[in-house]
Design a protein around this nucleic acid. Structure first.
Lengths: 124, 124
DNA sequence: ATCCTACAATGGACTTTGTCTAGGTCAAGT
DNA sequence: ACTTGACCTAGACAAAGTCCATTGTAGGAT
């Protein structure tokens, strides 16, 4: 545990936090000015490998990092501004995929992304 | 309808086709050597706008284009080799998101991605 | 206390994917 | 034949992420 890693972990803390790597870097720099982009990427990669943080790719833009890895949830994304909310749908989509539709794959996860417009973008 | 657009449409034909823009370009070049990358991108963009082709972003790598736009389906993705299969799960994930979990969003679409290992990668 | 070694961090170059722009070509209409 | 406009082309550009050689650092060995 180095100062750099601690800072990255601190930045990624809280609910409904979905920062891009660059945003994480910008905030980390505020706390530790000499931290480099590569270190932020490395540390985020390690956190993802450890299962402490989830990677979320909702569009072609930058990956986002979600510290809320321990409570299963899905995402609701604004098609216009990119805002993300964590949501907790009912049902179990995993159970909806019959064996006949698995084509021999070992299925280990399912991701559900709801797309639409957030209140601000829908109103405008 | 120009020669270039016809070639792109021809390349994107068939079931379980999920090519990247570059792959589309490579195959288009086989049929029409002078076709440019920009034209492929433009044409794919138009096909997506017309609703003839779906854009699929399963990872941080290139977008893939799915000509099977008229039958609703979801995707099963190999975490290792990136292979994609179309699947047709039961249930309606849209109905699983209660109003209380919509946070005022106007939700218009839902995407489900099953992740796992394909038979080849799981066996190895 | 000093040196060694392993690991981590740094900065910058590089790659990949996609977009943009300036110019060229071609067909249709006048 | 000239103009117009849509389409295409090549290449420059941009964003996001990765890689690599070098530098720094912390802990153990001497």
């Amino acid at each position: 545990m180095t100062a750099q890693r601690r800072v990255v972990a601190e930045v990624l803390d809280g609910d409904h936090v979905h920062l891009t790597a660059d945003e994480v870097h910008a905030r980390a720099v505020d706390k530790l000015p000499e931290i480099s982009r590569a270190t932020v990427y490395n540390t985020l990669g390690e956190l993802v490998s450890l299962g402490e943080v989830l990677e979320v790719s909702t569009d072609r833009r930058a990956k986002r990092y979600d510290p809320n890895a321990h409570k299963p949830h899905q995402h609701l994304v604004c098609a216009q501004c990119g805002a993300i909310r964590d949501v907790h749908p009912a049902g179990n989509p995993m159970a909806d995929l019959p064996d006949a539709e698995r084509f021999g794959f070992v299925v280990s996860a399912v991701e559900v992304t709801y797309r639409g417009l957030c209140p601000a973008c829908a109103g405008a």
